[in-house]
Simulated scan of single mutants.
Amino acid sequence: MKIGRIVIAVIVVAAVAFTVYRFVGSKKVEVVTDTRPGVMTVEPERRDIVIYTEQIGTIAPTQSVSVFPKVGGEALSVNFNVGDNVNAGDVLATINSDALTALKIQMDAAKVTMNDTATALSRTQALADTGAVATQVLEQARSAATSAALNYEAAKSQYELQSSYTSIKAPISGVVETKGVKVHDMIAQGTAIATISGNSGMEVKFGATVDVQNHLKAGDQIKVLHNGTEYNGNITEISNALSSSTGLYDVKASLEGEALQSGMKVKITLLKNKADNVLTLPISAVMYSGNDAYIYLYREGKAVKKNINVGIYDSDYIEIKDGINTSDKVISTWSNELYDGAEVLLSQNEGVESSADETVGNAETESAGNK
């Protein structure tokens, strides 16, 4: 009987122990989780922001002259072709001008009149020496001879001048770019027979918008790309008036590189905008509501919304005109849990908050009985 009671007691104790183990020993430790969104911060920095733009330009000779005849007529000879190198003064073409024929007739007539009046003066002078004619008659003969001589000289000068125009000469040395005449063509004044590109080098011409034109000045360097080869250039001329044909400001720049030829299309890289030593933030730190820009500042564990005014920006940074200073800590990570006054958790690598504020435990702990 005594042994039986002991067995019963052991069974009761075991049952109690099992019950305690079920309801106490196996109870899990509660997991405490920090629900604040984690954020990282940056401090505003001063830097330069430089923005470049690309334009398409056309290569042209620095000096280009169109050749026009000064008299009209038939082309008797044409002594050039496209691509020829010519020197200043070379005869490009000759013209047979009807106007020149008329001037020749006038000159010859004036010469006859001059000779006749000279002969009359000589006879009158002889008669005057004998007293056969009055002094007044002699003076009239002298005046007529003088007038006739002047008329002849004028007609001769006009003829010689127009005659020189029948030989059309190259005004500069260079390469013939265009040809607009053939032998026996009738040429009119004001019609170009050729275009000559000078030997003084090449330039690139392009149009600039007003925001680009405002940041350009003579002497600025540009980069020109053609078929994978880059050339350097310097701006030489910037128009202050909009072109009626393009609506842009015409710009010219001299170029280094003999491989570039007139008419080539090239890509130009030049300054579009620049801000020196301005306060900046990474673009990712700035958010917008409509057209209004804002940021979140980190202050004593909270996100504080701050409206700002922004300026120009490149691919990485944006200019901050006002609203913050260099000592502010700006939240640079986005979260849909951010709002003005929201409690946030500064990332551990910021060195501000310890891991004690982060999630306690990774998952459920082991049961107390297995520790």
Rank of each mutant, 00 (worst) to 15 (best):
S347N: 12
S347W: 07
D34A: 09
G198R: 03
T269F: 07
A17T: 15
A144T: 07
A208N: 02
T209L: 15
T236Q: 02
V20Y: 11
A93G: 05
A17G: 14
V352C: 01
I3S: 08
V212M: 13
G57P: 01
T191A: 15
Y339T: 15
Q158G: 13
L76S: 14
E319I: 02
I95K: 01
N214L: 00
N277Y: 12
M107R: 10
K28F: 14
V181A: 15
V78H: 07
Y288K: 05
L279P: 02
Q158Y: 13
I295S: 02
I295V: 10
T229C: 06
V360F: 06
R142Q: 08
G311Y: 00
R46P: 04
A126N: 06
E139T: 12
A342Q: 08
V251Q: 01
G263R: 03
Y21N: 09
S167K: 11
E366C: 08
R36K: 07
V42D: 03
L225G: 04
L225A: 09
E54T: 10
L225P: 02
Q136N: 14
A170T: 02
T117L: 09
T333L: 09
N309P: 03
A110Q: 07
I105A: 13
T35K: 10
A293P: 01
A293R: 03
F18D: 06
F18V: 14
L150Q: 14
A188T: 10
